[in-house]
């Protein structure tokens, strides 16, 4: 079969690689913002919520999580040390707030982030 449009094919192939490359770079440098929050109690998934929608969630009376302007924080907690309440709001993938006394973890999830965070 004779190729009638070699230039067109070359352009198409280049375009696909360019788009793929651009998409890759966008994902890599977007600051790895997460798109949802996973709340767990004692390791069990309690709720998965989009970071994009503002709301307030009571986690079994253990703490109250507030999602606002694309980040999540623990608004109040019944624990003694209040470390979770003092934690700054989280919005990037794998960032986590923990309320250890209550066994509650609030973690930002999304696709394309790192596997784990050392810190």
């Amino acid at each position: 079969m004779k190729n009638k449009r070699p230039i067109f094919d070359a352009l198409l192939i280049s375009a696909i690689f360019l788009i793929a490359g651009a998409a890759f770079l966008c994902l890599k440098f977007s600051g790895r913002a997460g798109d949802r929050v996973e709340i767990r109690v004692g390791g069990e998934l309690f709720a998965t919520l989009p970071l994009g929608e503002d709301r307030v969630i009571d986690v079994n009376g253990l703490c109250v999580v507030k999602i606002e302007n694309g980040s999540a924080r623990v608004q109040s907690a019944v624990c003694k040390n209040q470390i979770c309440v003092h934690h700054r709001p989280i919005s990037r993938q794998n960032e986590t707030i923990v309320c250890l006394p209550g066994g509650v973890t609030v973690k930002v999830a999304g696709s394309g982030g790192v596997d784990l965070i050392s810190g």
Binding site: R88, R92, E95, G113, V114, D115, L116, I117, S118, G119
Partner: peptide
């Protein structure tokens, strides 16, 4: 963190936390 082997699609990616938040 302790990682073993690799993921099916390559090495494990571990973020080092910045003291001010972020990676």
């Amino acid at each position: 963190i302790s990682v073993s082997g690799e993921k099916p699609d390559g090495k494990w990616e571990i973020g080092v936390q910045s003291p001010d938040g972020g990676i």
